[in-house]
Structures are given as structure tokens and as C-alpha cells.
Computed example of a mutant assay.
Amino acid sequence: MTTREETLALWRQQEQTVRAKLAAPGVSSLEDLKAGTGMEFLQKIWDGVLPSVPIAETLDFIPVEGEPGRVVFQGTPSKRHYNPLGSVHGGYFCTLLDSAVACAVHSMLPQGMGYTTLELKVNLVRALTDKVGPVRAEGKVIQVGKQVGIAEGRIIDADGKLYAHATTTCLVFPLP
């Protein structure tokens, strides 16, 4: 069984490795999006071939694992993410989970297809603070069809403690 310290060391090493490869934030072109499958597009971002995502820089989270149907983002909540009540704002939870579940759907799309989130349902289970350390949002596909993609996600800490869970429904469509 892995200890918390071992998990944290692994997570921090993965984060350092990924951060070293990411390009500066920016927005990819429609041509870049259409050039390959959803997984190929995401991999180009993760490899630093395409720009990293601006919202991830704003909230300081990054993708740390990804494969078709499963994507994991990691972030370390800090006081700059706090609400007036003294804990991490719900928008941080929602953005981290939306990124994980939507990218899980995106990872399953064939070339020439895009998506947009139609619905995101998030349940906040417990408060996050700057004392928690890094957390991970793992998104997993439930089903992706020709018009609809569905995925679920969870935010956990290094002990496996659940902080929030979500489901999404995405509209899948041909790119213009």
C-alpha cells in the first residue's frame, strides 16, 4: 500500500514533468483542432506542440494523465482560490471537474468532430483549503455516441478522500 508521502512525491514528480513540456498559454486554431482525433489534439497540447490552455494557467492546474476515455488534471488549491467564507470557491471545483470530464469526452472523438458542454452537474462533498495540498480531478467516459457524450468525474486528494463528483453531458458535432 502506498503512503500519503509516496503518493505526494509521485504526484509532484508527474506535475514537474508535465509542466516542463507545456507551451505558453494560447488558443489553438480550428485547423489544429480538425487535424487529428480528439486524443491526438489533447496529446499535442500535453507535449507542448500546441499552446497550453489559458484557464489552466489562471487556476494553476495541469493535465497529468490521459488516455482515450480517461483524463486526469491536478491542481493545488491556494488562498488565491478562496471565497469570502475562507475556503476554495466552488468555481474552482467546477472548472477542474469540467476540464476533466469534457477532455475525457474529447479524447474519444474521431477526426473532424467537436463538442461543447450542455450540462455539468457537480456535487461538493467537503471543503477544500490551501492545507489539503494537490488534488486530482479524474474524468472517465460513460458513453460517447454520434451526438452525445457523457462522462463522470471525481476530485480526490493524495489519501483518496473525495471532495466533489460530477457528471457531464456534451453535444458532439462535426467541426465547420
Rank of each mutant, 00 (worst) to 15 (best):
Y163M: 01
L59F: 13
H89G: 01
W46H: 02
A23G: 14
L124K: 11
G112S: 02
F61A: 04
P63Y: 02
V71D: 09
R136W: 11
L96S: 00
A20L: 00
E40I: 03
L85K: 09
L10Q: 08
A151G: 11
I55Y: 06
Y163L: 07
L124I: 15
G38N: 01
T95Y: 02
F41R: 01
E5P: 05
G69T: 00
V64Y: 00
L97H: 00
G145V: 09
Q143D: 12
A102S: 06
G90T: 04
D98I: 14
G26P: 06
V141I: 04
T167M: 07
V141K: 01
K34F: 10
H81S: 08
G48L: 04
V49A: 04
E15D: 12
L124A: 10
D157Q: 03
A166T: 14
E67K: 14
G114T: 09
G36P: 01
N83Y: 06
E31P: 07
Q13M: 12
K79G: 05
A102E: 03
F93W: 01
A104I: 03
G91S: 10
D98E: 15
T17D: 13
G66N: 11
D159H: 07
G48P: 05
V71A: 13
G149P: 05
T58C: 02
G114F: 12
P134C: 02
L162F: 02
R154D: 05
S107R: 06
V27C: 11
E15W: 13
L33T: 13
C103Y: 13
N123F: 11
A166K: 10
V125M: 07
L50N: 06
S78T: 15
K161R: 11
K140F: 09
T17L: 13
I55V: 15
L42M: 07
M39I: 14
T95I: 08
G114A: 11
V132F: 06
T169A: 00
E138Y: 11
Q143P: 00
K79E: 15
R80P: 00
P110G: 06
R19F: 06
Q74P: 07
L109W: 00
P110E: 10
Y115S: 08
R154P: 01
T129W: 10
A137R: 03
H81W: 04
K79F: 10
R19S: 01
V101H: 04
E65G: 02
G38L: 06
G75V: 07
P63T: 09
P176G: 12
I156R: 02
G75T: 09
P68W: 04
K121I: 14
S99Y: 02
L109V: 02
Q74E: 10
F93N: 07
C170G: 05
P68L: 04
K21R: 13
L124M: 13
Q43T: 14
G26V: 15
T37V: 12
V125T: 01
Q14K: 15
Y163W: 08
S99V: 13
D157P: 03
R126F: 05
V141G: 04
C94S: 15
Y82F: 15
L97Q: 02
A56Q: 14
Y92A: 11
E15H: 11
P54Q: 03
P77W: 01
I55N: 05
V122M: 00
G160T: 04
D98W: 15
A104K: 03
G91C: 07
T116D: 02
E57H: 12
K146L: 14
